[in-house]
Amino acid sequence: MALENLYQQLIMDHGRRPRNFRAIEQPTHQLEGYNPLCGDRVTVYLKVENGRVTDAAFQGVGCAISTASASLMTETIKGKTEAEVEQLFEAFHAMVTGKPVHPGVTLGKLSALAGVAAYPVRVKCATLPWHTMKGALAGAGQPVTTE
């Protein structure tokens, strides 16, 4: 598979200039995620009001894949209900691990990360922000790690 399938234009763009790369003051949910294998760290901030994500942001150090994944995630989940976010998590996870995605879910821009499925060692880069976000929503007090 060509390298460009992994590093698509959209990924390179979000990797270089991540959106929502900031802290949220007084978030309703916040959690740190860590991949001890590569040292990637991400902190996800969420503001959830009446069951809907009204703001999402992140900060941290990571590779192009994890940074782009976090950036695209925060863009995508903004405005979604918690139930919709849960569906997106499942669909995204299925996509990057090469499993069938539930036909009822639209991944939109997130599809740019589909190439990750061909790189098993990079799957954790793409899923770290998502696991962290899910942990934050669940109110987990402990930082999330991929190991």
């Binding site: 390298l3 992994l6 590569c38 990571g62 590779c63 192009a64 940074t67 790189y119």
Partner: peptide, 11 residues
């Protein structure tokens, strides 16, 4: 500069 070691290693 500006490229994470993981991305370097994949390339």
């Amino acid at each position: 500069d500006g490229i994470h070691p993981h991305d370097v290693a994949t390339v």
